[in-house]
């Protein structure tokens, strides 16, 4: 290019308005501070934020982008690629139902229909009382004892409709 003028640096300001509480902001900053020196730090940070907050809020992305010197678009691209990361607050309990072949062979399709009907939600939905979010999962490595589900990170095998009801009832119990 001809007529080169000295590069003007446009200062980038962090958005001041955020929907995150002070505690949540601190949690995101802490995750970044602890993990950002790792090679390939983005996934560990996203995992850490999701396990602290239950999801990766849009405003957390702003902080992570700043800390890792990445664009928000890049981080959005990563979050949206992976099924596990979510950007909306889930219910108090997350129930993952396995949809894969081994579970299909022992009734997973019927269980899925039963779960959606009794909870009144589709996959990725949350019940009206905010208790349960239903997610699909493709194999939990429990293929000889299906149908399988995972409730709040705990594997459950041989999930009949009756057992599903019991698991949901237990999850809904105030702890």
């Amino acid at each position: 290019m001809s007529n080169q003028s000295p590069k003007r640096i446009i200062p980038i300001k962090l958005e001041r308005k955020t929907s995150l509480s002070a505690d949540d902001q601190k949690a995101v900053h802490d995750s970044c501070a602890r993990l950002k020196a790792l090679p390939g730090a983005l996934l560990p940070i996203l995992h850490d934020v999701q396990s602290a907050l239950g999801f990766v809020p849009k405003d957390a992305v702003v902080i992570i982008a700043h800390e890792l010197n990445l664009s928000r678009a890049e981080i959005h691209g990563v979050i949206s690629f992976y099924h596990y990361f979510r950007t909306e607050k889930p219910g108090r309990h997350v129930v993952q139902l396995c949809r894969a072949e081994a579970c299909q062979s022992v009734g997973a399709v019927a269980l899925e229909a039963y779960a959606k009907r009794t909870l009144g939600i589709d996959f990725h939905g949350t019940t009206a009382d905010g208790a349960v979010t239903l997610e699909a999962v493709y194999c939990l490595g429990n293929c000889a004892l299906g149908p399988s589900a995972m409730v709040d990170g705990r594997l459950q095998g041989r999930v009949s409709p009756e057992r599903f009801d019991a698991l949901i009832a237990a999850a809904r119990q105030p702890s």
Partner: peptide
């Protein structure tokens, strides 16, 4: 990982490890 089946493919796995 984070729930992506394709990350069992070795080059996809490496991309994922790189964040």
């Amino acid at each position: 990982g984070a729930g992506a089946y394709i990350c069992g493919e070795e080059t996809s796995l490496l991309e994922s490890l790189e964040g």
